[in-house]
């Protein structure tokens, strides 16, 4: 019998493998990210870093909705019966949460890299602390994945999944995105952290993931 970590890891690796086999699916999203950054480069002559920062986080929000929606719809019904007997609901939601975290983070990094490449002529893009920004991206993508995972499981039973997921989780993710925009802007202008904002994100992660862990059990049973 495998222990909890091995089970979770197995679930994540299954997800990542299926993701890899259906590459074109997620490539579409990643390509979308690159196209957006290219459009921003061509469409706006000289955009300042602060507006770019806001667009960046809004795009991360859009990305995370798409990824979260795919996380559960991908699993077929027979497969979920199979999983139901093998692992507990905690493992599944935890694995989905981490999997969402990984894919959202990768999307964010791709967007960041492509924008740095396209906009390297702008000075403000070269001076901001990129390591801190990536750490912020790490925390915020965890935050978004923890808020989106449970609603995306909830909407499975309804017949209009995309719209309903937006309705359920956008109000919760608005303040998260706002905090991210503020923190990113602060990184650009002052080159430093605002620790309380980061702690706020972490507390949201804690609250949301705990609630998701406990509540997913009831959704999974049906």
């Amino acid at each position: 019998m495998k222990n909890d970590f091995e089970k979770i890891w197995a679930l994540i690796s299954v997800d990542l493998k299926t993701e890899y086999r259906n590459r074109y699916d997620s490539y579409g999203l990643y390509l979308f990210v690159m196209v957006v950054s290219y459009i921003l480069y061509k469409g706006t002559e000289s955009m300042d870093a602060f507006s770019y920062n806001s667009i960046f986080w809004v795009l991360i929000l859009v990305l995370s909705t798409n990824f979260a929606l795919r996380a559960f719809t991908k699993t077929k019904e027979e497969e979920s019966y199979f999983l139901y007997h093998l692992v507990s609901s905690y493992h599944i939601i935890f694995a989905k949460l981490l999997y969402n975290w990984i894919v959202i983070f990768i999307g964010g990094v791709i967007f960041l890299l492509s924008s740095i490449i396209f906009h390297s002529s702008l000075e403000s893009f070269m001076t901001f602390p990129i390591v801190l920004f990536i750490i912020l991206l790490l925390v915020s993508s965890l935050c978004l994945s923890s808020t989106f995972s449970l609603p995306s499981a909830l909407v499975l039973t309804s017949n209009n999944k995309g719209t309903l997921l937006g309705i359920l989780s956008f109000p919760i993710s608005i303040p998260i995105t706002l905090v991210c925009i503020n923190l990113g802007g602060e990184l650009i202008s002052k080159q430093t952290w605002n620790m309380s904002g980061l702690l706020l994100l972490l507390s949201v992660v804690l609250i949301m993931s705990t609630v998701s862990l406990f509540l997913f059990k009831y959704n999974w049973q049906s």
Partner: peptide, 22 residues
């Protein structure tokens, strides 16, 4: 009923950082 109950608990938990912390 089940989905609404789950979402209600989730929403209450989400409201705490919104109104109490931020």
């Amino acid at each position: 009923a089940k989905t609404a109950a789950i979402y209600n608990i989730f929403a209450y938990a989400a409201m705490i950082p919104l109104i109490m912390i931020i």
